[in-house]
């Protein structure tokens, strides 16, 4: 399988050279293959969002580089879509207009836009909310729209930064299922950031565990379980347990360092 994204020795320091300089990532390297579903798990503040922002081209790395299909990535590009955690829909646009936004920026003609948007409205089951405004929707619906919006411009890779983090447990599970269903329809390469161990075991082909201590990825887990995954499957429980223990270990070592 072809490598879509290659992260090479990426380091990130905020405000370098200043008193409040903060190293967030150091020497991070990994590869993402075509159609892979990768979850990045780690405690809050370990640099997950920063890593994702670098992969999206919104932030630049202070060291190393990111290659998208062999080309160095310097700024956002159409082939790499992003779903933010929250509040990223334009509040003055309807659901339909929000989903068409990317296509509009790419100067796709109107008829084509209508067709594509309709398709995605149906895919997320929100045809009847097409003319609603974001503030009239529940959190789960908003994230559905945000996902549809990023998929509508047909990206190659979708980066998701805790997209379900602000939702209640029930809605989160519902949306995880839905995401997998959509992923089955449109095979994209997905990088999904979460601090939820359970979420990562449900979704990922591969889980990258990040550490706040090393500013790096400390473990990689392959998830060899067929989908849909069963929470009562012993392998599910074992992997969850392994991940939780690894996270706890991180916590302990971090405290010892202090």
């Amino acid at each position: 399988m072809e490598t879509v994204i290659k992260v090479e020795h990426v380091g990130k320091e905020f405000d370098p050279g200043k008193k409040n300089a903060l190293e967030v990532l150091s020497d991070v390297s990994f590869e993402v293959k075509e159609n892979e579903f990768i979850c990045i798990v780690g405690p809050s503040g370990c640099g997950k969002s920063t890593l994702l922002r670098i992969l999206s081209g919104l932030e630049s790395a202070t060291e190393g580089q990111v290659l998208y299909r062999g080309e160095p990535l310097r700024e956002p590009r159409r082939e790499i879509g992003v779903v933010f955690q929250n509040y990223s829909l334009m509040p003055w646009l309807t659901v339909r207009e929000n989903i068409s936004l990317g296509l509009k920026f790419q100067r796709v003609n109107r008829q084509e836009i209508r067709k594509i948007v309709q398709e995605y409205l149906e895919m997320i089951g929100m045809e009847s909310f097409a003319e609603a405004y974001p503030h009239e929707l529940s959190g789960g619906m908003r994230q559905r729209v945000a996902i549809a919006r990023s998929l509508a411009s047909d990206p190659d890779v979708v980066l998701m930064d805790e997209p379900f983090g602000a939702l209640d447990a029930y809605t989160r599970i519902l949306l995880q299922k839905e995401l997998l269903r959509i992923w089955n329809l449109r095979r994209k390469t997905i990088l999904f950031v979460t601090h939820g161990v359970d979420e990562s075991v449900t979704l990922a082909d591969r889980i990258l565990l990040m550490s706040r201590r090393n500013h790096n990825i400390v473990h990689t887990y392959d998830v060899d379980m067929e989908r849909p995954r069963d929470r009562t499957d012993p392998r599910y429980g074992r992997l969850t347990q392994t991940l939780l223990e690894a996270l706890e270990q991180e916590q302990v070592q971090e405290q010892r360092l202090r």
Binding site: G57, L58, I80, F84, Y87, S88, L89, L101, F105, S150
Partner: peptide, 11 residues
Amino acid sequence: TLIESARVLGA
């Protein structure tokens, strides 16, 4: 985030 989400959509 609104500006950034527009940028990643190719604005």
